[in-house]
Design a binder for these strands. Structure first.
Lengths: 249, 249
DNA sequence: CAATAGATGTCGTTC
DNA sequence: GAACGACGTCTATTG
């Protein structure tokens, strides 16, 4: 760890260059302006910000408010720093697509480099993946008599989350979402339309999600699709965690 | 600005409490474990990370790699810090939806608080909004004879980017995207289907974007839609920045 | 490498 | 406040 308060441009330059060589994490706080040029382009006039440079090339510029960085370059980018008169220029280049972030420091208030040791990985629960697994283990949550034929069935127009048969031998396409949006319905529709061309007999579409919006239910009805509300809490406890609702069609 | 190296839990506690009171931006570096509970839930075993706490309630936990924070709470959350034996507990609470991030510091290597003055705002160019404006100024980019009737026409199923008439009085629905995806086609389809019920005569769908994938073009053709490739560079220069392609239907 | 969909997405805008 | 779509989305997964 190395930390400097109110460093001179020269001191900051050295700290950053050494940290880049050593693969350390860099934090800079100071007055700077930012230019971005790439998929889009942007200008951010000078202000005091936190600049975060990681050893994997990630560059983040954070303002005093907001969840997201105001400017950034993703992992894999290359950063270079140089001094021009009393200004310090930090430039990050991404190759594909070509994107360039140029930070001009008028004044650096704080510069620090840190060697972070961290081999831990996030263990996340409650993802869509888990919802699908739940349905596979408990196909009756889709409906009594439902049999899973294939998970993640690839088609010309994307991958179907779950695909199976109902008790009467009809094809059932299941789209699973944590939050059901218009998009989800349209995705389901794409798959159902495709399978209608290929499969004999009826093709039903079912949207399973933990939450629905009103507009979505209307659109589902218009499309002749059905939906199921999953309750993730109850699922975890092994109870019956589904409210069924069949639209008539 | 206040900075402490290898602070004791007590020192960190004081620094953070004072910074929270003063609305300052806080940076902590150290060994910590994280628990998240909310829309989803997650556990991150201990490791060395950068913790970023903003005066608007934003909490970010960054690992040594990756563009995105591994854990976070968005603006509007409330942070509290307290000491338990030699451990330091930083807890952030969001109310709607209820989400909780709890950081347990086993060791703090660096603690800093900063008063950031920044009134600048990002000026971004090249967004979808600009593409739509270009089409309004140059409706012939959609096709010769096209007349804009309405921009951002709201419907039951969303807002149509651009809506107008072709030279023969047919309704034309235009969906504009920077990158054309399956979703964009489906969005267009939703609008076209809706207008077919309402408008007399033919309803055409046109997807205008700067980039298309092969699958998207296939789906467009299946739906009987047309597409236009916009070249943003040429548009900026005022040249004819479009390649037309009419699917027959 | 392109293409496709998920995400604790976040964020802005509209209803 | 809910809902809906854009985003320099980013990221993982798969062909």
């Amino acid at each position: 760890m190395r930390v400097v308060l109110h460093p001179s441009p020269r001191e900051t330059l050295h700290l950053v260059e050494e940290a880049l060589r050593n693969g350390e994490t860099i934090l800079l706080v100071g007055l700077c302006g930012v230019e971005y040029e790439g998929r889009s382009s942007a200008t951010l006039p000078p202000g005091e910000r936190v600049v975060f440079l990681k050893s994997d090339g990630t560059l983040l510029v954070h303002q005093r408010v907001g969840n997201n960085p105001i400017c950034w370059n993703p992992p894999g980018s290359r950063a270079k720093i140089r001094q021009e008169d009393e200004l310090l220029l930090l430039e990050s280049e991404r190759l594909k697509p070509r994107e360039n972030v140029k930070i001009t420091f008028l004044q650096v208030v704080f510069a620090g480099s840190f060697e972070l040791v961290d081999h831990a990985e996030l263990e996340l629960r409650g993802t869509e993946r888990e919802l699908v697994e739940t349905l596979i283990q408990h196909p009756n949550l889709v409906e009594p008599g439902f049999r899973v034929v294939k998970r993640e069935k690839p088609t010309r127009y994307g991958v179907i989350d779950l695909y199976g048969m109902d008790g009467e031998g009809n094809t059932v396409v299941v789209e699973v979402k944590r939050l059901a949006s218009f998009q989800a319905v349209q995705q389901l529709r794409r798959y159902v339309d495709l399978l209608k061309q290929r499969e004999p007999g009826e093709v039903r579409g079912v949207l399973v999600a933990t939450r629905f919006t009103r507009g979505v239910k209307a659109l589902l009805e218009d499309c002749g699709f059905e939906y199921r509300v999953l309750n993730p809490r109850k699922i975890n406890k092994g109870e019956k965690g589904v409210q069924s609702r069949l639209t008539d069609y």
